[in-house]
Design a protein around this nucleic acid. Structure first.
Length: 362
DNA sequence: CACATTTGACCGCA
DNA sequence: TGCGGTCAAATGTG
């Protein structure tokens, strides 16, 4: 684990930098014919960055408390939150004292937990990379009382090999099928998560991705693409919000479950959830484009992931597929945003780098 | 063959 | 006792 201070500092710095960059972009846009939506989105993002920065300052304030990943995630992204509804982040229970609990319980109850809402939208060309996230492996699915869609359970692929106990749950929103609520539990301790470099078997991921989309991503330097991809995507107009900032440790919660192998670095692709058979979109393909809310407010899939979607046409359409994708997304989601670790250290970032774009808020 | 997903069973908590 | 979460055997995939 890293020391909270540096992480916070980094996060704060990133937020401020992003806010600045976004403001610059807005300035540029104002001078052009940029759409109103674009400007509004930029404003929203700027506000979000500052909110996060302030939140961090608060946490570090008087009490010197350190926000947990979850906490940050829970940062009010007011502007960003989906549909304007409050984030569901909950650290619930997370920090209860469980000292007196048996080990197993303790483990379960003490693990940090927070929720992100991820909206998947596709905009025209998704391309790119992918990456991001940790590798998740699905270990269960359950119908939840009162929920229209089943909840999927994922755990780190490296659970056994690296004793990484991070898990996440993906629940599609009843109200808006395009939104997935991803609840992360625990933080990644696997080394994969941090390595920007390629994960163990990229091929696999890739295979699946390709499978799903024809996209091709390039495949080789995923690591690099990770970061670049994000930027790239941003440029492409994908909007990403960071909702959950994670802690460093947490890093990227989402990767596609199914396949992603390397923890942080790879990303799976995600499919857009939206495709329920009955639902709205009827099909990904078209849907993506049209549905995308454009910039939405919340997270869109992580940039990287988005790229994978490039070709929506071949995306999986079954519910499970969607979910998987999501899960994957989730992972990604986190990554982009919060993952401070991920190779993008503010300090390392090229000043000229467009990270202002949405995805870059760390 | 290795690894991932599916899915019913099991377990613990409220 | 019901529900949510996890396990693990069966099955699928490359």
């Amino acid at each position: 684990m890293e020391n909270g201070f540096s992480w916070e500092q980094k996060t704060l710095t990133n937020e401020l930098i992003e806010g600045m960059e976004l403001a610059k972009q807005l300035r540029v846009h104002l001078g052009t014919t940029a759409s109103t939506e674009t400007n509004e989105e930029l404003v929203r993002k700027i506000l979000t960055s500052y909110e996060k920065a302030l939140l961090i300052l608060k946490w570090n304030g008087p009490t010197g408390q350190t926000p947990t990943a979850g906490a940050i995630a829970a940062v009010p992204e007011s502007p960003i939150s989906i549909n304007g509804s409050p984030r569901s982040d909950d650290l619930d229970g997370t920090f209860k004292d469980n000292q007196d609990q048996p080990d197993s319980l303790k483990k379960r109850k003490t693990t940090p937990r927070w929720t992100d809402k991820v909206r998947v939208s596709f905009e025209s060309g998704l391309e790119g990379p992918h990456e991001d996230g940790y590798s998740w492996r699905k270990y269960g699915q359950k119908d939840i009382l009162g929920a229209r869609y089943p909840r999927s359970y994922y755990r780190c692929t490296y659970r056994n090999t690296q004793n990484c106990w991070a898990t996440k749950q993906v629940q599609r929103s009843d109200e808006d099928p395009t939104i997935f609520e991803i609840t992360y539990r625990g933080t990644h301790t696997c080394s994969h998560g941090n390595s920007v470099t390629q994960p163990a078997s990229p091929e696999k991921q890739e295979q699946k991705l390709i499978h799903n989309n024809n996209n091709n991503n390039n495949n080789n330097n995923r690591a690099q693409q990770q970061s670049q991809g994000i930027l790239f995507n941003l440029r492409e107009g994908l909007s990403i919000n960071n909702n959950g900032l994670e802690n460093k440790e947490i890093a990227c919660p989402f990767s596609f479950p199914s396949t992603s192998y390397g923890c942080k670095s790879e990303t799976p692709c995600y499919p857009p959830p939206m495709l329920d058979e009955n639902n709205f979109l009827g099909g990904f393909s078209s849907s993506f484009g049209s549905h995308a809310t454009g910039d939405s407010n919340y997270f869109l899939i992580s940039p990287s992931q988005m790229n994978n979607f490039g070709d929506v046409h071949n995306m999986p359409r079954s519910e499970s597929d969607l979910t998987e994708l999501l899960s994957a997304n989730n992972s990604a989601a986190t990554s982009p945003i919060l993952n401070l670790d991920f190779s993008l250290d503010p300090a390392d970032i090229d000043p000229n780098f467009p990270f202002g774009s949405a995805g870059f808020s760390f």
